[in-house]
Simulated scan of single mutants.
Amino acid sequence: MAEARTLRVIGWRELVQLPELGLRAIPAKIDTGARTSSLHATILEEYARDGARYVRFAVDFPQQQVRQVCEAVQIDWRGVTSSNGETQLRRIIKTPLKIGPLRFRAEISLADRSDMRFPMLIGRSSLRRRFMVDSGHSWLQSPGREPERGHGP
């Protein structure tokens, strides 16, 4: 029998980091119904370097009036079904994701999430074998935030 693994408990929303992209304290909704994680991004440029496909994109944080420009290797194009049931062809990048003390590589789709409350969504592929979700709490793995009970605004 395989050794039991201890899973970290996370809330329905957490502050996460994408350290190689220079993004810290990103408000993210944890969504076990979504397969792939998604980041709000505006595509600025596609280019090739050393035989790899790259994408330069901007991540806007309207509340702080901040725009961060990022670059990453694009590993794939993938059809992703959004919350409204439409399938969109999206760019996929793979980059380290940090939730609490855990850092691991995650596949993330780049999408226009400007009409969503959270600039990032964490899907079940990133959660699997690492986290258990407590949907009645928030900020359980968010340094600098006091954990909250309930579903919040």
Rank of each mutant, 00 (worst) to 15 (best):
R91F: 03
R56K: 10
D115L: 14
P19Y: 05
R91W: 05
S83I: 09
R24Q: 12
P143M: 00
E86C: 10
L7A: 13
K94R: 14
K94A: 15
L18A: 07
A111F: 03
R5Q: 10
E46G: 11
R103H: 08
R124K: 03
R53G: 04
E148N: 06
E45S: 05
V59M: 06
G100Y: 02
E46R: 14
R103S: 09
L110K: 01
E71G: 04
P27G: 01
P62F: 11
S126A: 15
R49T: 08
L7E: 11
G136V: 09
I75Q: 07
D31M: 08
G22S: 01
R49V: 11
T87A: 07
Q68C: 05
I92A: 00
L21H: 00
W139A: 03
P27K: 12
H151T: 15
I99K: 00
I99Y: 00
T32K: 04
P27F: 00
F57R: 05
S138D: 00
G136S: 12
Q65R: 11
V16M: 05
P143E: 10
P19L: 06
S142P: 02
D134K: 08
F118G: 01
R13N: 12
E86W: 02
Q68N: 10
P62V: 10
R56Y: 06
G150V: 08
D31F: 11
L15K: 08
I92K: 04
I122V: 15
P19F: 06
R8K: 14
I30D: 05
P153Y: 10
Q63L: 14
E86M: 11
V59C: 10
S38V: 06
A106H: 00
G11R: 04
W139I: 10
R67W: 06
Q141T: 12
K29S: 02
S82V: 12
V73T: 13
G51Y: 09
E3N: 09
R35A: 14
R5C: 05
T81I: 14
R149K: 15
F61V: 12
S83P: 03
L127I: 11
Q64G: 01
P147K: 07
D115F: 08
E46I: 07
G79H: 09
I93H: 02
M120W: 07
E45F: 07
M1R: 00
R117Q: 09
Q68K: 15
T95Q: 10
P153H: 14
L127F: 05
S109W: 00
V69L: 01
S142V: 09
A72H: 02
G51C: 06
R90Y: 03
L89C: 02
I122E: 04
E146S: 13
P101A: 13
F104K: 02
L97K: 00
E86F: 13
E107Q: 13
I30L: 09
E107P: 03
S37N: 05
